[in-house]
Amino acid sequence: MIVSRYTSTNTNACNVLFLFLILFINGQGLIQDAAANNGIPEKWDRLLIEEIPLLKENLEGIINALDEGNYTIVSEQIDDIKSGGHWSNVRKELESRNEADLISSFNNSLSRLDKLVATKNISSIGEAQILSKDFKKMEQALAQPVIDFQRLLLIVIIIGTLIAFGLYIIPKVRKKLDIKF
């Protein structure tokens, strides 16, 4: 009977996957404990889909305001970058990727621009463009993938196990209740 053929295959696959899952969950717990003891910094939101567009908006605001000679808006935008959580999140992500050079370069450009804007210096336009280039470099760095193999494997194993379990259990239920799937 076709069902029995699949059932026997699934039983083995299911057992193996369950074993992997149990080992993996335990293993991951140990790794997390070790990481906490070694002083790895607190977690941050690595999904930067809101932060980067906001930073980009600030930079565009700075450039547009400088074109119009409106230094008040430029100052507001700079303050927004400095105090807003979005730059803090991006910085943490860059720190985790060991991109300290990019952070210091962006920070330096930002403080130079801040000083120039405070004195309403005309060369602030050039500085804003440097800031914009620094931001593009950061974007390029963030486009490089960092893979959390533990998480990836855990997801694959959990979903795989659930499917294998479903394929194992459904024919049994079908047979038991005498219904067709």
Partner: peptide, 19 residues
Amino acid sequence: GLYLTAALHHLGIYLYISP
């Protein structure tokens, strides 16, 4: 880019692709 960034994030692949 947005969909890809968010979907990969949930799988444990962290990157930012422009939308």
